[in-house]
Simulated scan of single mutants.
Amino acid sequence: MSGGLSRRVLQRLLPSGTVPAACPGSWSRVTPSCCGLQAGLRFMSGRGTMNVFNREMKKKQKNWAASLQDGHHYDYLRDEVGLRVADRVYDIARTFPLALDIGGGKSHIAEHLSKDVVERLFLTDISEKTLKQTKQSEIPTHCVLADEEFLPFKENTFDLVVSSLSLHWINDLPGALRQIQHVLKPDGVFIGAMVGGETLYELRCSLQLAETEREGGFSPHVSPYTAVTDLGNLLGQAGFSMLTVDIDEVQVHYPGIIEVMTDLQGMGESNCAWNRRMLLHRDTILAAAAVYKEMYGSEDGSIPATFEILYMIGWKPHESQAKPAKRGSATASFADLSKMGTPTDAEKS
């Protein structure tokens, strides 16, 4: 992480409750009592938010993963998705003076960007140990220890907001999207990636079948994810315009089910739902391994794990943006348009 942001800039963008902490580079900690929490609660007030995930457990999981000596070996999925998010940033022909990476961890997006595209960057994460391992980048970066559910930034602050493989652990995703739209400047853009509903379907199915056979029922071991059919509506309800949503699949091959689960732990991607089952019986794991190989195994003996990645792009409305024509303003009907490609009798002859 190179460079830093001036104290004057930090005071303008961060709330007064921000406390510096010992960490390489420019770094701040946001305490729960600061105005960032109040801003987050303002978006959530009056809404029945479901508390699906234990955020404190997720923080512990990410801190544990960051403490592994060989933790970089588990970054392959985040690096790949971060690269694909960066590609979408490059597709927009403009320079972003100030950007925000939500749940950026080790900065898997910024390492693929240049200072010609993003001039300055704020990077947040819930895990302090992960932030301390932020990768080197030519972009001046300021790390902020903050929960992604409560963004501690002022309205109309950022030209660009990005997020990669973080939003699927948010309890109130609609509220989080509204906060992102809130901190964007008019005509600012949000580019994000999160895992979708079909992620790890092989692991989920194998565990359910094995547990049903050995224990007479099953418990959820893979977290619930957002369906792609819901994502466009959520972005629209959050106030974004000119929406783009697309799906990509990343398939990784492993020697066996133990390696799949070990790598998920190393990524900090273990299940943190409140209703998760803490332990799996040894017999159930062995049965699940057999089911996995039987149903999904490859000819070379490996097993696939599929990650469905949902990419989203949304813009904060601005008067300069193109707008759809008013209803009833069309000058030609679909019937007229269909005749345009049909040759006349004279042309036929």
Rank of each mutant, 00 (worst) to 15 (best):
Q11H: 11
Q11A: 13
Q11S: 10
L13R: 04
L13F: 01
L13P: 02
L14K: 04
L14S: 05
L14E: 08
P15H: 07
P15Y: 03
G17N: 12
G17T: 11
G17E: 13
G17F: 04
T18H: 02
V19C: 07
V19H: 08
V19I: 15
V19K: 09
V19M: 11
V19A: 04
P20A: 05
P20D: 09
P20S: 08
P20F: 06
P20V: 03
A21E: 13
A21V: 11
A22L: 08
C23I: 02
C23H: 05
C23W: 00
P24Q: 05
P24I: 00
P24H: 00
G25L: 06
G25V: 06
G25A: 04
G25T: 02
G25S: 06
G25E: 04
S26T: 15
W27E: 05
W27H: 12
S28T: 02
S28W: 08
S28F: 05
R29W: 10
R29K: 08
R29Q: 09
R29C: 13
R29Y: 09
V30H: 06
V30L: 06
T31Q: 12
T31C: 10
P32L: 09
P32R: 12
P32V: 03
C34V: 04
C35P: 01
C35T: 14
C35F: 10
G36M: 02
G36I: 03
L37K: 02
L37C: 02
L37Y: 05
Q38S: 13
A39F: 11
A39T: 11
A39E: 14
G40H: 01
G40N: 06
L41P: 01
L41A: 03
L41R: 10
L41Q: 10
R42M: 09
F43P: 00
F43Q: 10
M44D: 12
M44T: 13
M44I: 13
S45Y: 03
S45G: 01
G46C: 09
G46Y: 14
G46M: 09
R47H: 10
R47S: 07
R47K: 14
R47I: 02
R47Q: 10
G48H: 05
G48E: 14
T49E: 13
M50P: 00
M50H: 09
M50C: 03
M50F: 07
N51K: 11
N51H: 08
V52P: 00
V52Y: 03
F53H: 04
F53E: 06
F53Y: 11
N54A: 10
N54K: 00
N54F: 07
N54Y: 08
R55S: 07
E56M: 02
M57R: 13
M57Q: 12
K58D: 03
K58Q: 15
K59F: 03
K59S: 03
K60Q: 14
K60N: 08
K60T: 01
K60R: 15
Q61L: 08
Q61F: 09
Q61E: 11
K62G: 03
K62R: 15
